[in-house]
């Protein structure tokens, strides 16, 4: 059982990070801490993606052969994609003489990181504004203020 955990240690790490992140998001009342949790949670997903792009014995997906010809360039890229399809099945052997790791998850996750940054920026901006108008970044306090506002209909 332990060996299973260690053999798939990347999953273990991903799961730990994921659960930590989610837990922080839900348990913490502080808006900043929630965002921290969210970032941890998202980061775990980045790791998950990158770890599945790894091919055992694979090199970084940088073309080492002659890249002067655009035509070959394209065909190599095609091979990479074809290789990607076979990764989960285990044996990643294909016509190309160099074994590459799958670059596609990296590309995908680059987008996801950008999205994560944007989300974080907006979350922080919102937090700053909330701090300005509510005078607090504790969720309980904000809810309390809103609740009173709802009951009385005025801003007392």
């Amino acid at each position: 059982m332990f060996s299973a955990i260690f053999e798939n240690f990347h999953y273990t790490i991903v799961i730990i990070l994921m659960m930590t992140g989610l837990y922080v998001v839900f348990s913490s009342g502080n808006l900043i801490k929630k965002l921290v949790g969210l970032s941890v949670f998202q980061t775990s997903v980045f790791l998950l993606y990158i770890s599945i792009g790894k091919v055992r014995g694979g090199q970084p997906p940088i073309l080492v052969d002659d890249h002067s010809s655009g035509g070959e360039h394209a065909s190599a890229a095609t091979n990479l994609l074809a290789g990607a399809a076979e990764v989960p099945a285990g044996g990643a052997h294909h016509a190309s003489d160099v074994l590459y790791s799958n670059p596609l998850p990296h590309v995908l996750i680059l987008t996801a990181i950008v999205v994560g940054v944007a989300t974080l920026a907006i979350g922080l901006a919102l937090t700053v504004r909330i701090r300005e108008v509510y005078g607090s970044i504790e969720e309980d306090v904000i809810n309390e203020i809103d609740y009173r506002y709802n009951l009385e209909g005025t801003d007392s």
């Binding site: 808006l31 969210l38 997903v45 599945i52 989960p88 989300t119 907006i122 809810n143």
Partner: peptide, 28 residues
């Protein structure tokens, strides 16, 4: 503001769950 923040947290969690699902789907 508070509503947008809540939406942001839950929306991001939703999107992240979705992207985890896609990861597994890609693995498969």
């Amino acid at each position: 503001l508070a509503a947008a923040y809540r939406y942001l947290i839950l929306g991001s969690i939703g999107a992240t769950f979705f992207v985890i699902g896609l990861g597994f789907l890609y693995m498969e």
